[in-house]
Every structure is written in C-alpha cells, then in structure tokens.
Design a protein around this nucleic acid. Sequence first.
RNA 1: GGGCUCGUGGCUUAGCCCGGAUAUAGCGCUGGGCUUCUAACCCAGAUGUCGAGGGUUCGAAUCCCUCCGGGCCCGCCA
Length: 564
Amino acid sequence: MFLRFKDEVASVLSSALAKAGFEIDDLALHESPHADIASSVAFRLAPEYKRNPKEICEAIYKNIRITPDSYIERAEMVGPYINFFVSRTLLNETVLRVLLEREDFGVLEKKGAVILEHTSANPDGPLHIGHIRNSVIGDTLARILKRAGYDVRTQYYINDMGRQIAVVVWGLMNFEFDKTKKPDHAIAEIYINANKTLVDEKEHSPEVDALMKKYENGDPETVQRFKDAIDTAMHGIEESLRRMNISHDEFIWESRFVRTGDVSRVMERIKKLNCAMIKDGALMVDLKDMDIQKPLVVQRSDGTSLYTTRDLAYHEWKAAMCDRMIDILGADHKLISSQLKAVLRLLGLPEPEIVIFEFVSLPEGSMSTRRGVFISADELLDEVERAAYSEVNKKRPDTDEEFKKKVAAFVSIGAVRYDIIRVSPDKATTFDWREALDFEKQGAPFIQYAHARACSIIKNAQDGGIAFESYDPNLLVEEQETALIKKLASFDSTIDSASRGLKPHIVAIYARELADVFNQFYKYVPVLSAEPEFRAARLALVDCSRIVLANALDTLGIAAPESM
RNA sequence: GGGCUCGUGGCUUAGCCCGGAUAUAGCGCUGGGCUUCUAACCCAGAUGUCGAGGGUUCGAAUCCCUCCGGGCCCGCCA
C-alpha cells in the first residue's frame, strides 16, 4: 500500500517538476514527522537555477496535480518543503486488502531462486549464543525474502573436513561418550578433552593427521566414523534450531565437492589464471588487483585442498541452481569472504551476497568451543524459559500448568529471537544475563501481547454473536485509528526495504511500532462498547491489526499467541 | 604495524548507504492512570557537545580528512 503511495508521489512530483521547467534526477523524498512523505527537492534545485528555494518550491507546488482516486490526499507547501499526505482511499483499501489477503498481506512480487546459507557451525559441539546470532539473522532473512516473493532454500554447510572434526573422531576413539547428555553437548565434552590431551601429549597429533588423510582418501571405516560423529552432533544442533523455529532445507557436506572432483576442477582452472602462482610448491592466487594484499592459498604443497578451495567449489555448484546466493557469516570471515568473492570473479563465476554480523562476546572475553568457554543456546533458552515461566505465574496465577508452560515456551523463544534481531548485525555485542532475562523492556512479549489483546477482542465479539462482515471503513477517523491503519499500510514497504538491504532488524522495529500504535488504539478507542456501525468498523480494524501483527511476527519466526 | 568495522542521554538502540524542518525508541529515574475489550498496557516529565577536531555545504549524526577508543582479521587452520 505504501509502496504504491511512494510511487504515486514520485510520479506526481516528477511531472510537476517537468511542468515547472526543472530537471533533476533526485526527488529528495524522505520520511518526515511533518508528513507521510516529504520532499526537499527545492533546495537541490536552488544553486543550479540561482533562485531561492521557496520560490522554486512554489513553482513546483503550483504544478502538482492529484487524481481523484489517488493514494495521495493532498500536497502542502511549508517553506521550501512539499509535504504529501495519504488519502482516505489508501486507508480504506488497506483495511479491505488486509481482510482479503490475510496471511498473504505484505507478500511482494519479487521473482527468483535464492539459496541462503546460514548457521553452518562446525559439528564439534552445541550451538552457542554467537552461533545463534547467525541462525536468527539467517532464518529471519529467509522469511523476509520469502515474503518478498523469492523462492528461498536454506542450506547448512557442514565443514566435515576440518581438523576439529578429526579431533572429535579421535576423541571418540579414546574417551568415553556420555550417553546421558544431549548428543551435541556430549560431543563438545569429547572435543574439549581431546584438545586438552593433544596439547599435553603431542605424540598423538600424527594420529589426528592420519585420520584426516584417510577421510580425504575415502577410507570406508574412517568415513563411517566421521559420519557417525557428525550425525551425532548435528542431531543435537538441529534439535536446538527446531526449538527456535529454525529448520534448514538442505545440509551440504563439504567433502562431497572433493569426492565429485569439483574441487580439483576448480584448482585446475585457477592454475590457468594470470594471477595464479606457485610458491614453495603451493598454488596461490595473487589478489592485489582486487585490492586484497593477502594472496590466497588454494592448494597445499602436498596437493590437498583447503577450506576456501572447497568453498569455491560449493559456490560454483550453488550458483548453477539459483539466481542469488546469500551467505550469513561472522565478522571473522570478512577477509576470507572477500577473497572468495575475488577468486569467483576472476573465474567468471557469480558471487554470493554476504551478510556479516559482528561478534557476541562474554563479559570475560570471547567464546571458544575448543576451550569450553561458551554459553550454549540450550542453556540460554532454558534460563529464559524459566524466567518467562515465573513471569506468567505472577501475571496469570489463575491459569493452569499446561497454559503457563506453553506461554513460557513461546515467550522465551520470541524474547531470544527478538533480542538478537532487533540490533543491527554490524554492532558487536556483549552478552548480559540481566538483559537477556529482562521482560520489562519492549521486546517480543510486548508484540505478542498486542496480538493476544486483538485476538481477545475478536473472540469476545464472536462469543457475543457480534458480526462485522459489513462495515464502513470511512468511520475510522480517530487519530489512533488512522495512525494504526497507516502503520498497517507500511508493512509492504517495510518488507521491501528489509529484503532490498538484507536488513532483518527493520522488520523487528516495524513489529514493535505496530504493537505500539495498536496499544494506543486499544487504550483510547472503545470497540465492543461502541455504537453498532462504529463497532463493526473497529472490529474490522482490530482483525486487520491481528492479521498484520501475526504476519510480522511470523516473518520474525516468533509465535503469535491468541492468549498469554 | 596494515585492513575492515563500530562509537548517538546512566545503560541498550534507530536513523548514516541516498545530507534537510524540534535526533528514534526502550530500560532505568520522577509523577500519574485498572467498577470499561488481558495493566506483559497507557500518559506526562527530566536526561544528548550524535567519540574529538578540522573540512565540504544555504544546511552535517549522515559526506571527506586527521586523531582517540572498542571489536574482528592479517596460517600451506577452519
């Protein structure tokens, strides 16, 4: 709805500009507290046409023509600014469209296949609070892109050829696996012990190297050992992801690209590149021309491949199946991902779009699975759920046990996801228990609560046999009502900008603002006790709010409860 | 040392790409509001040299330069 409004403003302004005899590409449109959309284009024109901005503004303003059915109500001139306001038509059509399209409201018409890779944590232990920043950003982005219209598939790239997995396998051969623990946690225990032993007793190091070699060569017994170890860890990892409402469409093992020969083919092609060079028997690519000072090694002197080489083959394979590749990566991958892109470009292959998120650290420093210094996603979720339970217990003492547990579960998952997604990926954060367990702040529960309130009104109406199939949207004229409808109308432009910029936090902010305006409406505008014709119109608006709140929450992967 | 990135009230944070009209919101703080649809709510108030300095511009949180502080990276690791 807002997308069309913006388009109309742009075209109305462009033709006014043309009629007034001005020429400029940038319409200088921006959001403003003074209007639904404002333009400061007169300022831009002033120096070129050597007239004062106000004069220019008047000339443009005089030429503005708005058609009767437009989404623009009127334009107004304030000093050198032109302010545009949304029309009743837009407001009414918003209500109509939401009720018609329901869960599809806000679905855009972008086309194309997207493969989005996220999480891809090494299967050497459980997901920790750093990993899930990746998972939540990735999953939310996948949901945003789906709503934008793309055909999205998510992939988890399993690094099964790295040394850390060989260490896990070696550990499983030398230490006892604790079957009573969640499998990914039991694997972490093995991994931590094995690392400690390998540091203390250096003589075992060649045993790990031998495992890696045998795995790369495809020795059946070793392959089985690796597979068992990884499946065990992945079983636990997937369970944690599922708990957070996250699932992957595919799991891609990096070893497959070695086995299919894709990796050797990529290395052969790199050898033919002008910037390829052999140094001390290793194949490397000089990337100075791409503004990267560090050359990239793609083949060891013993002829084996490296992580990046396999990643190159992975991307070549992916590119053939989609129009866009998107990778969600931690800040430690900044250099390596720009090297990856540079080599792909040199090879004439499509490059992925990379979303980098900054690190999550603990107050005492950075996390490390290897050293056992981390807070697991499971631990975080458990603690938050416990806090959420005591909150429901306090707020709804009248309800039964099953209800409280159910509410604690969706509130905690929502709170965790929202806390992660609300901040821009390029802010480094320090984890804070007090912050994580705080339910007073405006977060997911606030939005879920607004949704539950809307559901409650609808339910009360239904229980009372009050129908609202026919209603007149023109009766929705209170300040809180129009503010609410405008917010509903901007859901499409929110999805549009979030998907364009791959910025999931925009949707998080939108959901919070929508809940905010709904709560104000709820407070000041009576629904069920209003006169029948107003009651019907307001019930329709409540239903719209419920639908869009649910859509926004769904886009964030957060449950939209009917009651809490 | 070099590269990338972040720095916005006591704390957390939006806006920065694409410069505009009183800088966004939350927590916390002060005060107020439940005989009305769920108070996990709402209203009012105090709190800011937008890290510092310079420059560009009619206009800078936003663009450019320098500096300071935090994070990440700079392996024939992944």
